[in-house]
Design a protein around this nucleic acid. Structure first.
Lengths: 209, 209
DNA sequence: GTCTATATTAGGATAGAC
DNA sequence: GTCTATCCTAATATAGAC
């Protein structure tokens, strides 16, 4: 029963507020109010609001790059892909504030732009790696011309699904269900799977609804 | 050679600035500066910045609802669909500032929320109508279970493609190429088309690159 | 480490002359 | 219709006591 350090509580509270009302709408005063500490105290731990954002981004980047380091010679199963997608959506959802107002955030914290693009590229690359593994195993069959658009589409969906989804539930912005996103992603891949695996994937996808 | 009314120039200039640097980053001073008029003058024409945003949204809503009123008993050809997608992406791109910082915009201009959701629903509905027309004509073959996810995916992509695309070109934010979006959309539909039409769609989609 | 009080902007908006 | 000058407020951030 150790008590959490103030510095960490600031990060936690900020993340929760950012996600639920949008980063630009969260003032340093709101954060300190929510935590029942003084604004001065907050500034003792972080020299600016931007520093909080950047540290949260550090966390996101770290978790993401970890997750995206898919070995490019492994035989990936459909189950493993499902699990991967699940983790991916959970991570994006946990930091969804970044995507909800992406242009705004990136324009105010310029150093993040390059790192953001890198993550995007890594995502696309990870999807390509998975697809190639599926192809080698005969799980997937897809034309060269179709592979690129598919991977782009998967990347787009993984980035924006949670933002898109909140459009339907603007009243309750505290929680996000990642399952629906996974379901959607599987249905993108499905048409390119070989018949047997199509059926397997269809069954699997249902569990995520 | 008629000269444009100041009021309309304000709308034009605001839209351009909103799209290129993001609505939250555009101050009323920046708008008036860009036009070489005084801030006071701007406020003579619009009583608040929010009024500018709302009027631009009115325009977007109007163009969109016009475009989305797809007759539900017509036989739609692949060409017509391509044309429709083209117009759709052009319209979204012209008002892309709305999607670039959606959560922020919607939270500051609450009345827009309901209208936004309505447009989203209408989009999904339009896509379903088109798919059903394709099915009736034997152009498309798709399971009942697959139709919903597909239409959702088309809606997501139509909303966020331009925002996603600017992620790759953050340096040049003045223009957006809608073609790539149309291409992407066609590739979503493609797997569900009957073989002959798949080939036709594949050829058609190439023109959009 | 934490507090209270205060400085500093910046942005939205108004008043009143021309 | 347009301008200049100014007000108001809210948000970031700092100073200095405890």
């Amino acid at each position: 029963m150790k008590k959490i350090k103030t510095r960490d509580r600031i990060l936690q509270t900020s993340l929760a507020l950012f996600n639920s009302v949008g980063e630009p709408n969260v003032t340093t005063l709101l954060i300190s109010d929510e935590m029942d500490i003084s604004p001065g105290n907050l500034y003792y731990h972080f020299k600016s609001k931007g520093d909080i954002v950047e540290e949260l981004f550090d966390q996101y980047e770290h978790e993401m790059l970890d997750l995206l380091s898919v070995p490019n010679d492994a035989d990936i199963t459909l189950d493993q892909q499902g699990f991967f997608l699940h983790l991916l959506f959970e991570t994006v959802a946990r930091y969804r504030f970044l995507y909800q107002d992406l242009v705004n955030v990136l324009s105010r914290y310029q150093p993040l732009q390059v790192r953001f693009k890198r993550i995007k590229r890594k995502k696309t690359f990870a999807f390509r790696t998975i697809c190639e593994s599926f192809q080698r195993q005969g799980i997937m069959e897809i034309g060269t011309k179709e592979l690129d658009p598919l991977c782009e589409q998967l990347t787009l969906t993984s980035c924006y699904w949670s933002a898109f989804d909140t459009l339907s539930h603007l009243e309750n912005r505290e929680t996000v269900d990642p399952g629906r996103g996974v379901y959607q992603m599987m249905h993108l891949v499905l048409p390119y799977l070989t018949p047997d695996f199509q059926e397997e994937a269809r069954l699997m996808s249902r569990d995520y609804l």
